[in-house]
Write a protein that binds this DNA or RNA. Structure first.
Lengths: 327, 327
DNA sequence: CTAGGTGCAAATAATTTGCAGAGGC
DNA sequence: GCCTCTGCAAATTATTTGCACCTAG
């Protein structure tokens, strides 16, 4: 398990501020291979087991340095000593901590993050890091029965799974939006655009689902593992609201504008989230999806311009069209 | 300042599990008078200043006991030592912690709380306590200029202020809802009910605003102090959604049902929040408001029943699609 | 009378520091 | 050669414990 996980390039991770060092690399190496939250002393033990002659103080000093360098993050579960975790994978994440078995499990929540940002902004506070810890009793300690978990070895997979789930939900909602928009658009060209987008969504949906199935195949338990990434907006968000607006009745132009707005928002979201993470399948999914959304938006924008132009031409008498291709 | 803040009854706070004790009361007393987050040693210093002959160990033991007894809460700001805060005032609250000046400031957020609950539920985790800490730089450290703060002496006032603000926002939104509902309701009796409710909202709104002004008069800076209680749903929540639905067009019966739903939700929220806190003006506001919402809901329910009854009587001549309400 | 509370000093535990020597640039 | 890193041991800091003594019920 796990030792074969691709480690990030040490040179990249170790920023300026210290000498090349030999021992540091040793310690860093051992540290990065771990998947649990280590205490300084546990790390010391591990290091000494691999190579004798490294002092405890050095481990402490190296940990300090790793934290200031941003390679490691210090977490405090209230045990009276600090634990450390590599920070390269998920820049921000939060913890569920079982008061009984002392194990911790991680999660991401873009909803919590944005609330925190809002609150900080309201207080004119410049946030640098936030800690969210939910203490309580885990399912296993409560019911006794063992349930699939997310450990270091599976985090990547689960993250990818959740990214895909979000993308699929958004895609579904987009498909519904475009289908509805196509059905109600009067302008022929506009309708064609919506139909084309609906088609693309359908196609891409199929791709995503295939990819999802492939991912699932990598770990038979993957689907039953707990949610890692919480985000309420994916399915119930932009496109759903857009479809809602369509239902109330709008004209062709408005439908296009709504579509543009949805794609823009969706693109922003996926891009922002995708950029937050280190290389991984999940990041990939986010970024690809962001790209697709932008392409769609561009298409809609072109169509919107064209519609306006044709309307303008019609409204006046007839003028020579200037086929301006945006990009 | 501040020593005259009414202290909660010691007998109530000190639960079974220990002897009457004399020193403990001393320590507890000093502790409860404080408004800052004390470290064990700081408390020891304070206690020894008031009465010599109390050992450091006793302070530590008493703090431990206070925590298990639920009188105090242990907070960890990552300084390598624990701090403690009395837990009687706000059962749950979170912290903004300035990494520069090491001061911390508190906030409440029902939004964060509910997200946390959702996440815990999704993970089948039974949460008991949650910690949210936002580390960063406070406004004062960043800009140098001093801004009004929330300290122990003003927390109660600010909490009451925010409770009132929420109530006022909800009331406003309710007023709009009922005004709109009254305007579009065809049934005379139903319209009268909506008008009456609109009237009540208007009246209560005036009361709340008066109360708000009185509160503000107690502290000239009160209005400019930062937000303590974050809750997005108050103004933009239930009633606003309800009004939105009205705008889309509904019949009398549906309008009543929407009203009932809004009042129910609103009542639940204010009740739940009101129950969470120790005696204070803010709690008062929440509970009173909860009561009012329930009264309104009851009125609407009665009216709804009456309408159904009357419709039943004239069933054959009226076009009455009976919207089945599940839930 | 007796269980639990208390002070003091000593013990732990986690982490830091002083200092002489080693190693990278 | 200079400056930083490193190991070791000693120091510091926060907190706990052992133990003889006290006090409320």
């Amino acid at each position: 398990m796990g030792t074969d996980r691709p480690l990030p390039d040490l040179a990249t991770l170790r920023p300026a501020g210290g000498k090349r060092s030999s021992k540091r690399d040793q310690i860093l190496n051992v540290f990065l291979r771990q998947q649990a939250h280590l205490s300084a002393d546990e790390l010391f033990e591990l290091v000494r087991r691999e190579k004798a002659g490294i002092g405890r103080a050095t481990v402490y000093r190296t940990l300090q340095w790793m934290v200031t360098a941003g390679v490691a993050r210090k977490v405090d579960f209230g045990e009276g000593r600090s634990r450390f975790e590599p920070s390269y994978r998920h820049p921000r994440h939060f913890h569920l901590i079982c008061a009984n078995c002392h194990r911790s499990s991680e999660f991401l929540s873009s909803d919590v993050e944005s609330l925190i940002e809002e609150i900080a902004a309201a207080r004119h506070f410049a946030p640098s890091q936030s800690v969210v810890q939910i203490f309580g009793t885990c399912e296993e300690c409560r019911t006794g029965k063992q349930t699939p978990t997310i450990d270091g070895a599976t985090t990547e997979l689960v993250f990818a799974r959740d990214a895909l789930r979000m993308a699929i939900a958004t895609e579904r909602s987009g498909l519904e939006f475009y289908t509805r928009a196509a059905a109600m658009t009067k302008d022929v060209r506009g309708r064609t655009v919506f139909e084309r987008l609906a088609g693309e969504e359908r196609e891409h949906l199929a791709t995503l689902q295939k990819r999802y199935r492939e991912l699932i195949a990598q770990d038979p338990q993957l689907e039953s593992r707990p949610t890692f990434l919480f985000f309420k907006g994916a399915a119930s968000g932009l496109f759903a609201t857009g479809a809602e607006q369509l239902r109330k009745g709008v004209n062709d132009e408005q439908a296009l504008l709504i579509g543009i707005e949805c794609e823009r928002g969706s693109h922003e979201f996926f891009k922002r989230y995708g950029e937050r993470f280190e290389d991984s399948e999940g990041k990939q999914v986010f970024l690809e999806f962001a790209d697709e959304e932008r392409a769609h938006r561009d298409l809609l924008v072109r169509e919107y311009r064209s519609l306006r132009e044709r309307q303008g031409r019609h409204r006046r008498s007839r003028r020579t069209p200037i086929a301006k291709r945006a990009r």
